[in-house]
Simulated scan of single mutants.
Amino acid sequence: MDSGKAQRHLACAQGVVPALTGCLGALDALHGEQQRPAVQAAGMWQRARSVTPDLPAVTDRHLTH
Rank of each mutant, 00 (worst) to 15 (best):
H9R: 15
G15K: 14
L30K: 03
E33N: 10
Q34C: 06
L10H: 10
G25S: 09
A26L: 13
L24H: 02
A38I: 01
V17G: 01
P18D: 04
E33T: 06
H31W: 02
L10W: 11
L30G: 08
G15A: 13
R36Y: 12
V17L: 06
A38V: 00
A11Y: 02
V39D: 08
A38R: 05
H9I: 15
G22C: 02
L24M: 10
A41F: 00
Q14L: 09
Q34T: 11
L20M: 13
L10F: 10
A13G: 11
A41K: 03
T21L: 03
G43N: 08
E33L: 11
V17E: 01
P18R: 03
C12H: 14
H31M: 09
V16C: 08
E33F: 12
A42E: 07
E33G: 11
D28M: 12
L27R: 00
A6C: 13
Q7E: 13
H9F: 13
C23A: 10
G32S: 03
L10G: 05
L24C: 11
L10M: 13
D28V: 04
T21A: 06
L20P: 01
Q14N: 08
A26F: 07
G22R: 13
D28P: 00
G32C: 03
V39F: 05
G43T: 05
A29G: 04
D28G: 08
V16S: 11
Q40F: 06
R36F: 07
C12L: 07
R8G: 06
L20V: 05
L30Y: 14
C12E: 14
C23Q: 07
V39N: 02
E33Q: 14
A41Y: 01
P18V: 06
H31K: 02
T21R: 03
V16P: 04
G15L: 15
V39L: 04
A26D: 11
T21H: 04
G15I: 05
C23L: 12
V39S: 07
A42S: 10
H31I: 10
Q14K: 13
L24V: 07
A42D: 02
A6E: 15
Q40E: 09
A6W: 12
R36S: 05
R36Q: 14
V39R: 08
A13I: 09
P37G: 06
Q7L: 14
Q35M: 08
Q7V: 14
V39K: 03
Q35Y: 05
G22Y: 02
G43A: 08
P37V: 02
A13P: 00
A26Q: 15
A41I: 02
A11F: 02
A13W: 09
G25V: 01
H31A: 12
L10A: 13
A29E: 11
L10Y: 06
G43L: 07
A38K: 00
A29Y: 05
V16L: 15
Q40G: 01
R36T: 12
Q35N: 03
A11M: 02
Q7N: 13
E33H: 11
V17N: 04
A42Y: 00
C12T: 11
A11S: 05
Q40M: 12
E33D: 10
A38H: 11
A19K: 03
T21K: 10
L30E: 09
Q14C: 07
P18W: 06
E33C: 12
